[in-house]
Computed example of a mutant assay.
Amino acid sequence: MASDDHCKTILQFFMLERVITVSSLADLMERITGSASNSDALINKINERIQEFSQKIVKATCEVTGDKMYVMIFTADEADVKSQLTKDQIDYFYPLMNNIITSSGSLALITALNMAPAVTMARVSLADAEKYIELFVLKRLLLLENGFLYLSPLTIAEFGPYITENYALDPCMLCKKMLVFGESCPSCSAPIHVQCFKDFLQNSKKAVKCPQCKEQLSVAA
């Protein structure tokens, strides 16, 4: 059973990194407590202590890589993001997030760089934009894969209420959770997370059909 000291050690890790994969947390718990079997119980114990500070550790799955992880979020109006970034960085980050969401969940890096002067009234140059994007990736706010930017699991979890309020996004037809980047059924266009579809394929013993329209399901995942 995890002691108070164990909880403090793992909480310190979350406060520093904010994101840890499920497998990495299990390894960390094995080293600290001698057992990796009570991750959820430990996270619940930590959450009881940090909820008064508008903080919470939640499970998330990366929409791009499928990695399962825990992320530490702040639940008070994106206050933590705003405290970490300068005004120019914030003024660039929000339009970036908007363009990623409204571009089916991904945005070409070159497009993201070129839009910086226009969306910040020329306060952010192309050189600044490149540095800011590196910072956003370093802080786990954005994910950069193969020349495209995506919202990270941390950002989706922390900005969930903001995204829900400002964007009409249909949830994944399988897990029913928010979907920013994914695929869709070719017959009814119902959205689906790539990892959810892979899990669905793996667990299905019969012909794979869309849970919504019941047509044959073939998604390029």
Rank of each mutant, 00 (worst) to 15 (best):
N114L: 13
S106D: 07
A122Q: 15
V124C: 02
I110D: 13
A108Q: 15
S106I: 09
T111D: 08
N114G: 06
K131Y: 04
L113Q: 05
R140Q: 14
V137N: 05
E134N: 15
T111W: 00
S104L: 10
N114Q: 12
L96I: 10
E134P: 08
L138D: 14
M121L: 10
A108R: 15
L109Q: 11
Y94R: 02
F93M: 07
A127H: 10
I101M: 09
A112Q: 03
L138R: 14
L107V: 11
L107A: 04
A122C: 10
S104K: 15
T102L: 07
D91T: 06
A118N: 10
E134C: 12
K139P: 05
L109C: 09
V124W: 01
L109H: 09
I100Q: 05
G105F: 12
A118C: 11
Y94E: 02
L96V: 03
M115S: 07
K131T: 11
N114K: 13
A127E: 13
Y92H: 04
A112I: 04
N99F: 14
I101L: 09
I100T: 04
K139G: 05
S104C: 12
A127D: 14
R123Y: 04
A108V: 09
L126Y: 13
Y94K: 04
S104P: 09
I110L: 10
L141Q: 09
M97H: 04
F93Q: 03
L135T: 14
T120I: 00
F136I: 03
I133S: 01
M97D: 07
L109F: 08
L138A: 13
S125A: 06
S106Y: 08
P95E: 03
T102N: 11
T120H: 06
I100Y: 01
I100E: 09
T111C: 03
G105Q: 03
A122H: 13
L138E: 14
M115K: 01
L135C: 11
K131F: 04
L113W: 05
Y132C: 00
R140K: 15
A127S: 14
A127W: 07
L107R: 05
L113M: 11
L109N: 10
A118G: 07
A118F: 14
A118T: 13
D128P: 03
T120P: 09
F136E: 00
A129F: 10
I133Q: 01
R140A: 10
S125W: 01
P95W: 02
E130N: 15
L96W: 01
F93A: 08
V124Y: 02
I133D: 00
F136S: 02
T120D: 02
K131H: 09
K131M: 08
K139M: 13
A118H: 12
A129P: 00
T111F: 05
I133V: 14
V137E: 07
A127R: 12
D91A: 06
I101V: 15
T120C: 02
I110N: 10
D91F: 06
K131C: 03
M121R: 13
S104W: 09
S103I: 10
A116R: 00
A112M: 07
D128T: 04
K139N: 12
I133F: 08
L109I: 13
M97E: 11
T102S: 11
F93D: 00
P95K: 02
L113R: 11
F93E: 03
S125H: 05
R123E: 06
A118I: 14
K131E: 05
